[in-house]
Design a protein around this nucleic acid. Structure first.
Lengths: 218, 218
DNA sequence: GCATCGGAAATTGCATGCAACATGGAAAGA
DNA sequence: TCTTTCCATGTTGCATGCAATTTCCGATGC
């Protein structure tokens, strides 16, 4: 009867709460009252508790024993560490991808990059952001390492609210696409170290864009 | 009255079950019956369920909806991916450590390395393994990035049963110490790329040692 | 003999209830 | 007026109970 059958309530709850957090519907520091969430979603406290614990281990919420759960607060210092970690892991994926992507995977990455050129030109930030997710996902997949891909995806989700905003900065789309170009060229040519450096630079520049916005107060 | 006061039953359970898994008391593929675990630890099913979910997100156990939990099985392919991921992340930590370790941290790393020389010479595999954990922990800490350190620690725990066994191979202690030597020299000298390469090589050699043992059937 | 089907037992998912702890505020003392 | 103590209230941690699903095992048909 439910649209999302097969999965348990706990799973659906975890997904919905996570979605609410990364989209900003639940602000950092917001108290996550078990009973309130249970009422809101029409379930009992038990699946809510299990969902919150799950989100706790993934870092999205902070669960303090006997003191309830809150949406994880990220201090500027922690935000910087998250970006550095993401940059390093994505760069590692890019290096591995340059070494081990199949010809088909390389062609697809190249094709995707060309599509994104149009999106960047027309300035459709939403469409570009979605394609961007696909692009980075293709690099993770090309590394042929599920563990690193998982880490990268998890970091990407946690940083999504911050990354998303920076796409609305003037000219950021074009610069992002140019940075991608360096990554793609290195991967296609199989130049591993260059791919690493290009991706590291790209994500570091994203971090700079985000920091610039935060300083200006967003 | 309890020895481990302050923490909740769920936390203690998660720690104990994790310990039982990494020490091998619970073999991979072993069924984790909620009621049985509850009886065994003298609690109800609720904290057991929460602990299992927590271990599920960290990868130690596999929870299949409505079908119970089992100790995570690692196929040889997954094992290889775990080792590659650990090698890459540890190498990244080593590179960052070479760039940003404080003088005090560098001195301590060097001192620890010298202590381990004696342990390797006397052939005390247990003591060497413990010191080894401290050594790698010092490198994570030196990277000054809690996110990467967490990832590295999590991988280290998951691979512990495999890494531990290889220390009993003949001559592995001396070779391990020599490999550490290259890492320490590069970090102390601040040669970042060299530290990266040395650590990558070290962990990759550990993987080779483990694979060699598995092929011979352990 | 092998595969398929059906029912009983076992096990999980979830709801509910109760006790322990944390939090906030009023009352008492300095 | 400020601090401290105590109590009321709310919230979490955990136990228990029930319904739904899965799994196991034997019977039936081919």
């Amino acid at each position: 009867m439910d649209e999302a059958a097969g999965r348990t309530r706990t799973e659906r709850l975890a997904a919905e709460i996570a979605e609410a957090i990364v989209t900003g519907a639940l602000a950092p520091g917001h108290r996550l009252d078990e009973q309130a969430l249970a009422d809101q979603y029409g379930v009992s406290r038990t699946p809510v508790r299990e969902a919150l614990r799950q989100l706790g281990t993934s870092g999205l919420v902070e669960v303090r024993p006997r003191r309830g759960a809150v949406v994880a607060q990220v201090t500027p210092a922690q935000l910087a560490e998250l970006f550095v970690a993401m940059a390093e892991i994505e760069a590692t994926c890019a290096r591995l991808a340059a070494q081990s992507m199949s010809p088909l995977e390389r062609r697809r990455l190249d094709a995707l990059h060309e599509v994104m050129a149009d999106l960047a030109a027309t300035g459709d930030a939403g469409a570009y952001a979605r394609a961007n997710t696909t692009f980075h996902g293709a690099v993770y997949a090309g590394a042929h390492n599920a563990v690193l891909a998982d880490f990268a995806l998890s970091l990407r989700r946690r940083l999504q609210p911050y990354r998303e905003a920076q796409f609305r900065q003037d000219g950021r789309l074009a610069r992002s696409h140019a940075e991608h170009g360096a990554v793609v060229a290195a991967i296609l040519a199989g130049r591993a170290e260059e791919a690493h450096a290009a991706m590291l630079r790209h994500v570091t520049l994203v971090e700079s864009a985000v920091e610039g916005m935060l300083v200006r107060g967003a």
